[in-house]
Design a protein around this nucleic acid. Structure first.
Length: 510
RNA sequence: GCGCCCGUAGCUCAGUUGGAUAGAGCAACGGACUUCUAAUCCGUAGGUCAGACGUUCGAAUCGUCUCGGGCGCACCA
């Protein structure tokens, strides 16, 4: 159920006699209490068309609308805005369909690529951010019924791999590790075994990602591209479509045609491919696998890559789209002092260690709560607190409280919705907030700002706790009790669903 | 020097794509427990939205500039 769409459709029909509404207008949730459950700015836009003041239009419209929708809404004109309140009765009726999926159908086929760390060392907290955000995006896409697949690209070829192998070999031979090699303790651990260092790291990655509820539909190795000769094929494609030129014995891609600030080299004058050339082949491979919408999640240290990659996709297939989501970096702290995260020196706290220390739920919550545009200062001690300073517990406690009531109640006689009686303001508020869940998810599926799911959960928890304090459930007389148990069930379902999308557990006892 | 991101309450951050008197959490202060789990609730206080100018019915949000912080500017990967 998408409430905003329901509302917008009803208003469109009601306004059809006076305007075709052929302009941008919106239904929004006012931030100010007392401005209604919803509000619309349609009168400001109508003012131009009708050549009357927004205020006058709003007043006239509200008189009509109030007659027409008496059962469902009340409309109140204030200074050109129309404030819309849902009647208690209508909220009650709608709350039968809170999680009903009426999302518009989508024909795109999306591939979300994230993490894609080199198999040359352990994952750290920064990789964790992309894992959490990426897997949440995948969950949201699935929830709204989009075709989506997740992928981890394994750079198992190239210079860094050679550095890794050389470092392990040096450690085995007891010779000094090369200057540009890897110096972490794990190199020496690997030297004591016969394990393939690449396989070892891939397995480590899978294991820790699994521990924070992140899995991938495919793990795509770079070496596959080389085996299939995909790089020369991709370059031939670009050449034959006149996107390339030769200069000083190198092959260039004319990316400035697509808005890049300079052209980029594909084949160096020593004959080797650049990383960019291989990446183009990889993305051509994605498109050849019939994906029409690509999403890549990258760290801010790769943002310079955006223009050339968009150029590549435009050149490869003008019908495909790519969203490059750039996330700011994560700074790790312990009790306010910074913890360094350099792979090269080996002075590193791994994602595995962080997860062991604070648990998957806290990792996922704190890595997803902020906009990708903001960097995260992640404090290990703060994330471990088991008190009111920790929003994870605030949210989970709400769910556990609900479960406790159902346990005490014992019988399963509340699942049919009782007929409407009346709603206490806190009852209406919590149900209305549940009704807004699918609206929010649908918006997230458009803009991929998944941190809003965390904000939603926090507010839902607050709404629930307020309702819980104000409205006794098991102590109430039978019909009131059944009504409130029904409300509780609706709220619980929204908690379960949203925690599940975030990959955070919904504990029944705390 | 050029590009991207950020600057909002003491702290950490939201702000529904341009809406109304700027919102939460934490911290502070004052209240509510022989409880349906107090890991909670209710109330109070806290702001020149970094700054300036502009765009319009209307700006934290859009544009230009300034200041401050992060990241990046390879025939590296």
């Amino acid at each position: 159920m998408l409430i905003k769409n329901v509302l917008k459709d009803k208003l469109k029909d009601a306004l059809a006699p006076i305007s075709s509404l052929n302009f941008v207008w919106s239904i929004e949730i006012p931030k100010q209490k007392g401005h209604g459950d919803y509000a619309t700015n349609v009168c400001f836009q109508l003012a131009r068309e009708l050549k009357k003041s927004p205020k006058l239009i709003a007043e006239t419209l509200c008189t009509d609308l109030n007659k027409q929708f008496e059962e469902e809404f009340t409309f109140e004109p204030i200074n050109g805005f129309i404030n819309i309140n849902l009647t208690e009765n209508f909220v009650w009726t709608l709350s039968k369909n809170v999680l009903e999926k009426s999302f518009p159908k989508s024909t795109s086929n999306t591939l979300i690529e994230f993490v894609s760390a080199n198999p040359t060392g352990p994952l750290h907290i920064g990789h964790g951010r992309w894992a959490v955000v990426g897997s949440t995006m995948v969950n949201i896409y699935k929830y709204v019924g989009k075709n989506v697949s997740s992928e981890f690209y394994i750079n198992d070829a190239g210079v860094q791999i050679n550095n890794l192998l050389a470092s392990v070999k040096a450690a085995k031979d007891g010779t000094p590790i090369p200057e540009n090699g890897y110096h972490g303790d794990y190199i020496h651990d690997l030297a004591k075994t016969n394990e393939n260092p690449i396989e070892y790291h891939i397995n480590q990655h899978k294991s820790v990602l699994n521990a924070i509820n992140t899995s991938f539909d495919t793990w795509y190795p770079e070496s596959n591209l080389h085996k299939a000769n995909d790089v020369p094929k991709a370059l031939d494609y670009l050449k034959s479509n006149n996107f390339t030129f030769e200069l000083e014995k190198a092959l260039w891609f004319n990316t400035t045609k697509f808005g890049d600030d300079k052209d980029r080299v594909l084949v160096k004058n020593d004959g080797n491919y650049t990383y960019f050339a291989v990446d183009i082949a990889y993305h051509k491979n994605k498109l050849d696998r019939k994906f029409t919408h690509l999403i890549n999640i990258l760290g801010a240290d790769h943002h310079g890559y955006v223009h050339r990659m968009k150029a590549a996709i435009s050149a490869l297939n003008e019908n495909a789209t790519i969203d490059l989501k750039i996330g700011q970096l994560v700074n790790l702290f312990r009790d306010g002092t910074p913890v360094r995260m350099s792979k090269r020196t080996g002075d590193i706290i791994t994602l595995q260690e962080v997860t062991d220390e604070i648990g998957s739920d806290a990792v996922r919550y704190f890595l997803s709560e902020k906009s990708l545009d903001s960097s995260i200062d992640f404090d290990l001690e703060a994330a471990k607190l088991k008190n009111s300073e920790n929003p994870v517990y605030y949210i989970q406690y709400a769910h556990a409280r609900i479960c406790s009531i159902f346990r005490k109640h014992g019988v399963d006689n509340y699942k049919e919705q009782p007929s409407f009686d009346s709603l206490d303001p806190t009852e209406k508020a919590v149900l209305l907030y549940c009704l807004q869940f699918n609206d929010m998810i649908w918006e997230l599926a458009q803009n991929l700002e998944t941190h809003r799911l965390n904000t939603y959960l926090l507010t839902l928890a607050r709404q629930f706790h307020t309702f819980y304090e104000k409205c006794p459930i098991l102590k109430s007389e039978e019909s009131l009790k059944l009504k409130r148990l029904y409300i509780l069930m609706v709220v619980q379902n929204v908690f379960k669903t949203s925690l599940n999308l975030l990959g955070i557990s919904a504990p029944e006892v705390m």
